[in-house]
């Protein structure tokens, strides 16, 4: 009885998961297909299926600047700079904070640790108002720094709490031994703890990288031209004249592929970090 039931159950599992998978992949497939169609075929109804795939959209994305405020490659550079610097700064400040929370006992520790986590709830739209005015009066509009500092702050709660989980996995005995050897706090952190939590830091950094790579609202308001990031570029393919479908979808594929590849490769570490150490890789 058990075997037959299991058999039916397995069939059922496929019957549920495969349509679900197709449904989940459908928008992505549409993006890929549209990105290799000639611009004018992209939105034809009924949809055109027998087309000759072309990479013209990708080529023109990186070539001409006609009709666009900034070239897409320039926006990609901005995106890379902003998200990489954000990640590095976030990792440095976050690891330091996480180490303090994980290893030290001090007055107000409970409050500070709860508070760092609870800053997670502050919506970007809310903190945007004062930051918009501040950035304007400091004359920092359209600069990388105007994006990086808020992005670091937005990523800190998760960075601190993920890294805290990884630090707790490091046996205290090792650190105590180092302390006996006369290492200072920063030396212990740098020479003993960080090498041991590197994989965890990698996963954390991927999360921060993804978050800052994808951020839309701050980039929309605080950039104009020079510091404009790629997600804003995507939205700008929609103009009064219509939508440059081919280039828009090609650009979408270009900015999502690195994230997809990262996510697939680091998924185990990512889960480990996001479950705050409940699962070990």
């Amino acid at each position: 009885m058990g075997i037959r039931l299991r058999y039916i159950e397995n069939i059922l599992a496929y019957l549920i998961i495969i349509p679900l998978l197709l449904l989940f992949l459908f928008p992505f497939l549409w993006l890929i297909i549209t990105s290799v169609k000639e611009g004018t075929d992209a939105i034809a109804i009924p949809p055109i299926w027998d087309f000759h795939p072309t990479f013209n959209n990708y080529i023109s994305l990186f070539r001409s600047t006609e009709g666009r405020s900034a070239d897409f490659s320039g926006m990609l550079v901005s995106s890379v700079i902003v998200s990489v610097v954000t990640t590095i700064l976030g990792l440095i400040t976050g690891t330091m904070g996480a180490y303090a929370i994980a290893r030290y006992k001090f007055k107000g520790k409970d409050f500070i640790s709860t508070w760092t986590l609870s800053t997670l709830m502050v919506p970007a739209a809310v903190s945007l108002i004062p930051i918009f005015l501040l950035v304007g009066s400091l004359n920092l509009m359209d600069t990388y720094i105007a994006l990086i500092i808020p992005y670091v702050a937005f990523n800190l709660p998760l960075i601190i709490w993920m890294i805290r989980g990884f630090i707790l996995d490091v046996p205290v005995a090792i650190e105590e031994a180092a302390m006996v050897d006369g290492c200072s706090t920063f030396q212990i952190l740098w020479k003993v703890v960080i090498p041991l939590i590197l994989p965890g830091m990698a996963a954390t950094s991927i999360l921060a990288l993804i978050q800052s790579w994808n951020e839309f609202l701050f980039a929309l308001v605080l950039t104009r031209d020079m510091a404009k990031t790629a997600p804003i570029g995507i939205a700008e393919f929609i103009t009064m004249y219509g939508i440059q479908w081919g280039e828009m979808t090609a650009a979408s594929i270009v900015i999502t592929s690195p994230i997809i590849i990262f996510t697939i490769f680091v998924r185990k570490y990512l889960v480990r970090g996001l479950t705050f150490g409940a699962v070990k890789g």
Binding site: F28, A230, S252, I260, F262
Partner: peptide, 9 residues
């Protein structure tokens, strides 16, 4: 894949 797609996209 869906969770890796940039939200605005």
């Amino acid at each position: 894949i869906p969770m890796s797609i940039t939200p605005i996209v």
